[in-house]
Amino acid sequence: MQRHIRTRLVTAAAAVLVAAGTVTAGVSTAEPEHAKTTATRSAKPTKAQIAALFDGWNAALQTGDPDKVADRYAKDAVLLPTLSAEIRTDRAGIVDYFVGFLAKKPVGVKVRTVINVLDENSAIDTGLYEFHLTDPVTGAKSTAEARYTYEYEKRGGKWLIVNHHSSLLPTES
């Protein structure tokens, strides 16, 4: 009798495990504990996901709101801007730069990009881009060709720029 009850319990337990997807044809498919913690960590972002961060930054430029652009930078970010010799190391400085830059109605276009995903929380996007600008007084159109580096970190679940260097492309000699 006890053997019969034990057989029923084992059979019932096996049915529950199969229904839960942890046993298939007598082989356990349950993840070991160390695999669960690895699986729940953030995966490394793709290069396309990092490239899209520039698109979001460029879209923030299109709003004309320097605060929206500054929101894409970390509190301790460093900005070496394209059209200024002043290094910006705080939000106020970053906003100040974008007040003047946004007056030119910039539209950024990447020419060449090289993305290095360092880990699940950091990546670097570097390359060449150009800005199509409009003079706020005369309406004259111009293009600024520049090289850039964006260093991104994922902080509090949000990708932010921690270092942004942009400088005019040197003329060839």
Rank of each mutant, 00 (worst) to 15 (best):
E153A: 11
G156R: 06
L79M: 10
G100V: 01
A144H: 03
G21N: 09
R88Q: 14
D65H: 12
K47E: 15
G26M: 10
T40I: 06
K158R: 08
V107K: 11
V111N: 12
G21C: 06
S28Y: 08
W159D: 02
E86P: 02
V109N: 10
D125M: 00
A43M: 07
I94N: 00
F54Y: 14
I161V: 15
V117W: 03
L80R: 13
W57N: 01
V78G: 03
K141H: 13
E151T: 12
Y152F: 14
V27R: 14
G64I: 10
G100Y: 08
L79R: 01
S42L: 10
V18Q: 11
L17C: 11
G156L: 02
I94Q: 01
Y73N: 04
S28P: 08
T37F: 14
Y148F: 15
A35Y: 02
E33L: 11
F101V: 08
G127H: 05
E130V: 00
H132V: 00
T40V: 15
K104W: 13
G100Q: 14
T63S: 14
F131E: 03
G93K: 05
A85T: 07
R72I: 00
Y148W: 09
Y148V: 10
L102T: 04
A52Q: 15
D76Q: 09
V23R: 13
D55W: 04
D119R: 08
T38Y: 10
P45I: 04
A39C: 09
D71Y: 02
P81D: 09
T149E: 02
Y73C: 08
R112Y: 11
A20Y: 12
A144C: 10
K47P: 01
H34A: 13
S122Q: 07
E145L: 09
S42I: 03
V23H: 06
G64A: 01
F101Y: 14
R41E: 15
L61A: 00
T143V: 15
Q62T: 07
Q49R: 10
Y152T: 00
T24L: 08
Q62F: 03
Q49H: 13
I115L: 03
I50L: 01
L80Q: 10
V95P: 02
K44L: 07
Q49L: 06
Y129G: 09
A48W: 02
G64V: 09
L128E: 15
L80W: 11
K44I: 01
A20S: 15
G157V: 09
A19P: 00
G127R: 02
K75C: 00
A25E: 15
A19D: 12
D76E: 11
L83A: 06
G157L: 04
T134N: 08
K36T: 07
T29M: 06
I161W: 01
V117L: 03
A92H: 06
E145F: 09
K105G: 04
I115K: 01
E145S: 13
G127P: 06
A77G: 11
T38N: 04
V109D: 10
D67Y: 11
I115H: 04
W159I: 07
F54L: 04
E153Y: 02
S84E: 07
T63F: 11
A52H: 13
K110N: 14
K75N: 13
E31Q: 13
V99C: 08
R112K: 14
T29C: 05
T40R: 15
P81E: 02
R112V: 08
D65Y: 05
Y97G: 05
S84W: 05
T40C: 05
R155G: 00
K68A: 14
G56K: 08
